[in-house]
Design a protein around this nucleic acid. Structure first.
Lengths: 338, 338
DNA sequence: CTGAAAGCGCTTACAG
DNA sequence: CTGAAAGCGCTTACAG
């Protein structure tokens, strides 16, 4: 706090209390042989002067705040990429990163405070009002990375330009000549999934292309959603020639379904993903995808968390980083002109 | 450790070393004005006597220990899977997990102690003698997950039965009828890679099958190694009909090279990976691989770290968990009988 | 119940 | 490069 002030010593307290150092020492160590009212006064002064026993001083002296990062479900490549951005950024700032799965224990926020955490970063977690209240009560700042909810002004969040990403992905497919473009996405209630889907719709409608209901399939952000969604789409009387997938895992599931049906990607079916996790580069074929700058988003979340932990204000409670289309080998013109 | 023994003091060390307390203090604090050989001798004695600076002594008592997990390079699916095992196991034990990239700062081990860490888990990191000395001096226990070096008795480590895994992978290919089986593996100096390679050799030699030198390609545990290694193998006058890859990333690189050459996996080329990270399930085709129980290994590493942090002895400084062949869709009999 | 005094473990400016 | 000496922050046995 006061960087130049030396630490309060027992002698300071003794002077202030008008007792000896020995007596103060006894109070600190909880000995019995101190008069109650002496004890009380000394305790008050210890507290006022923010006295810290030498054994504990190092925990304070460390200018290294600890930030808790929580995620839900599995540690996917998506979470791993964001986490790597957080770790790198923390290393630059001298902060420590504790990683855990989201807990719903009664006093989780207060427990985090007493364990010395200075802020929480939640990766895509859903927060209910109850969680926000518990957090508010504990005074622990929260930053949500890629929020599933609409930005609540009580919550700080870092996202990406999902609508623009969905638009870019779909325009890329249109520019290759595709007209039958389907969408397999994430949960309908997740804002990021909604934005991607509306970007997709906007691009198609601008071209006057049809978007049959059967071409839009919300689901989970999982491989299985891709696997199953692609099967349903390919069984349609007029199957799409291209699929925009809501994330890379879904896209990889689509590729696998195509493979098992003897269809080649991109010759028979074009696929675009979203995120550009390490999975995208290692897909076979390597995935055309919309890069979401997860590392940078992690870094931004960490820096925001540190500023909040420091009691500083942030300009905006929500920021979005730009997405960018990365063209690899999973997209090509359709077989017979769309 | 010896609960009744009083803690070692600087005076004890000074007496044992035949120097003054002042000199010992300088060594502990890393001052420059100490003769190298004096420094060395004092450091040895500090380690032998298990000296712990007073500021750090309280960390011995904390109920919710914090364990530092360090990794090198990127946060791959391999690291993520191990980390998830560590996190889950820590949650059960009430421990906290701090995650960071391996640091080589001058006093990193001591800094970790002063930040309250009770043990370090290193995921596959290479430790030099200098690192081990720094650790020993700080009194911080180390557990290496999937060590690259031969087990040093000063280091506790958790691995998997790599030789048996290499054997099982190769036998699987042999049983399908393959005779021209190549290996693309990890660094020649890494014991885990060596063991996998020798398992491969043992399986082939037991069958009397040839292992031409050109069929054995050490490299890195990366996608690029798989990409390039497969190109070299397929350019051979007698290309292999099957490849055993040292890990899943390499295997996925092999699959991609096959695809770009118009070869189908598994019809034209069988591929087996190693690890069974989430990448294996999402490969196209899904990868036959040797499951390394990374989550369980992470859990075992965490529990070992906690016991060491508690001053308990562990039965063995190295344990290995069983690997298991997981057959998926990337392996099949060769086209014309091998 | 209090505190002067001895003592502990450590650090550091400084003389050699 | 070394260590005697002064000093710091704290604790504790003991006299009052």
């Amino acid at each position: 706090m006061r960087p130049n002030a030396r630490r309060t010593t027992l002698a300071d307290i003794a002077l202030a209390a008008g007792v000896s150092v020995a007596t103060v020492s006894k109070v600190v160590n909880g000995r019995g042989d101190v008069a109650p009212h002496t004890r009380t006064r000394v305790q008050e002064l210890l507290h006022q002067h923010d006295y810290l026993a030498p054994v504990f001083r190092h925990t304070e002296a460390v200018e290294s705040p600890t930030i808790e990062v929580q995620f839900k479900g599995g540690l996917t490549t998506y979470v791993a990429d964001a986490l790597e951005g957080i770790i790198d950024s923390a290393a630059e700032s001298g902060a420590s990163v504790v990683i855990s799965k989201a807990s719903r224990a009664p006093h989780w926020a207060r427990d985090l405070v007493s364990a010395g955490r200075r802020a929480v970063i939640a990766i895509t977690s859903v927060y209910t009002t109850a969680h926000l209240n518990e957090l508010a009560r504990s005074g622990l700042p929260l930053v949500v990375l890629d929020p599933l909810h609409l930005p609540d002004s009580r919550v700080n969040s870092v996202g990406a330009t999902n609508f623009a990403g969905g638009l870019a992905a779909t325009r890329h497919l249109l520019s290759l000549g595709h007209r039958r473009v389907a969408y397999i996405g994430g949960p309908a209630m997740a804002v990021c999934a909604q934005a991607r889907m509306h970007g997709y719709r906007a691009a198609l409608e601008a071209e006057g292309a049809q978007v049959p209901d059967a071409y839009v399939r919300p689901g989970e952000f999982t491989y299985e959603t891709g696997l199953l969604g692609a099967r349903a789409l390919l069984d349609l009387p007029e199957p799409p020639t291209a699929v925009f997938a809501g994330n890379d895992e879904i896209a990889v599931g689509v590729i696998e379904t195509a493979r098992t049906r003897g269809l080649r990607v991109p010759e028979d079916l074009s696929v675009v993903g979203f995120d550009d996790t390490s999975l995208a580069q290692m897909a076979s074929p390597p995935l055309t995808t919309v890069r979401q700058p997860l590392r940078e988003m992690g870094g931004a979340a960490l820096r925001t968390a540190l500023r909040l932990a420091n009691g500083e204000k942030v300009e905006s409670h929500h920021i979005e980083l730009a997405t960018e289309l990365v063209v690899r080998a999973s997209t090509a013109p359709p077989r017979e002109g769309g």
